[in-house]
């Protein structure tokens, strides 16, 4: 489904990585490892089409993602290291708006349920700015519960989460894989996602 060939990333004058090749099929999980500054975030941003590789190609179902553009966006969910939530909006508003912008309008009930499952029950209508870092992260991750995309690209999704939340995320990811979804993620934490195929990509 997702096929990456000869990818090279250049930042400024330095080549961060080159000759990166991999492919991901339905139900597969890939973890990208590497020290700080090895280009993990850059790689994930390239996979989304947010930045252009210096060299190489990324194909989705056989087509270059550049040519698919908005069509491709229908199939992916990207959660970056920034939460992408508005401080002045409530958790509920944030979830509904970010889902709608991703082309997936949800009603209030569905949003309530998702937030509840993320352990944010009772805090749905508080402005996000008074929530803790971990709780904000949960608001962001709640999107995974309501979205219907196939490929998830997650940049350090576990940052600031407590162990209970990490377990929760793990189960969400496993469910997604069981349904034939695909996941590419980076993390520095230990997480053991059960998948049919687990791939590891080491950048350095």
């Amino acid at each position: 489904m997702l096929k990456v060939s000869d990818l090279e990333c250049v930042r400024g004058e330095r080549s961060l990585f080159k000759d990166v090749n991999f492919s991901i099929e339905a139900g597969e999980f890939m973890q990208v490892n590497g020290p700080n500054g090895s280009g993990k975030t850059s790689l994930l941003r390239m996979l989304c089409g947010l930045s252009m590789p210096a060299h190489g190609e990324i194909r989705w179902c056989g087509n270059a993602i550049r040519s698919l553009d908005e069509e491709y966006h229908n199939s992916i969910t990207y959660l970056g290291h920034l939460n992408g939530v508005k401080d002045n909006l409530s958790a509920l508003e944030n979830l509904r708006i970010s889902s709608a912008l991703a082309g997936n309008e949800i009603d209030e009930n569905k949003a309530y349920n998702a937030l509840q499952r993320m352990g944010l029950g009772g805090r749905e209508i508080l402005p996000v700015k008074i929530l803790s870092q971990g709780q904000r992260r949960r608001v962001t991750l709640a999107r995974l519960l309501v979205c219907s995309t196939v490929l998830w690209i997650l940049d350090e999704p576990l940052v600031a989460l407590d162990s209970a939340a990490v377990m929760l995320v793990q189960s969400i990811l496993e469910q997604h894989l069981e349904k034939g979804g695909m996941i590419v993620m980076t993390t520095h934490q230990d997480i053991n996602v059960a998948a049919v195929v687990t791939k590891r990509l080491q950048l350095n």
């Binding site: 089409g49 908005e70 966006h73 990207y78 920034l82 939460n83 992408g84 939530v85 508005k86 912008l101």
Partner: peptide, 15 residues
């Protein structure tokens, strides 16, 4: 841009 919502908008399936 600063809180990451712009990135999400760029990934929206809409033009």
């Amino acid at each position: 841009y600063l809180d990451g919502t712009l990135e999400q908008m760029l990934l929206s399936p809409q033009p």
